[in-house]
């Protein structure tokens, strides 16, 4: 997977950060601990986050701050996690959620 991280920005400073490992549907991905899971996935070029319940339409980020529910994924077995506001931790297992997810 390629890396979409900005290294040099004309206004902002983005210091190089330590990467941690996590998985997306079982495949290994790297991200920065503490950034949102969605950001880590996006940096690795992963934009497809879940499929809608009725028509199985692919969904990704829309608002990126927790308002719209477009980004719900299953994280460490817990469904409906808003990955755009959930901080990444090393070893997380992130899965594309199909539909509404199961709570019990």
């Amino acid at each position: 997977m390629f890396n979409l991280r900005i290294i040099k920005h004309p206004i902002l400073d983005f210091p190089k950060q330590e990467m941690v490992q996590f998985t997306y549907n079982g495949s290994s991905v790297q991200g920065v601990a503490g950034e949102s899971i969605a950001a880590a996935l996006h940096a690795a070029g992963i934009k497809m986050l879940r499929h809608s319940s009725r028509h199985h339409r692919p969904r990704g980020l829309f608002c990126a701050i927790g308002n719209c529910s477009s980004c719900l994924m299953t994280v460490d077995g817990v469904p409906n996690v808003r990955v755009c506001v959930e901080p990444l931790r090393a070893g997380m297992a992130v899965e594309v959620q199909q539909g509404k997810g199961t709570i019990v």
Binding site: I6, E35, A39, H42, L49, P58, G60, C63, A64, I65
Partner: peptide, 20 residues
Amino acid sequence: DLPGIYGAGALQTLMNVYGI
């Protein structure tokens, strides 16, 4: 609703908060 369609704030969050 396709992935790749964002609100403006989402792009700002990606670029200016996460550097992506």
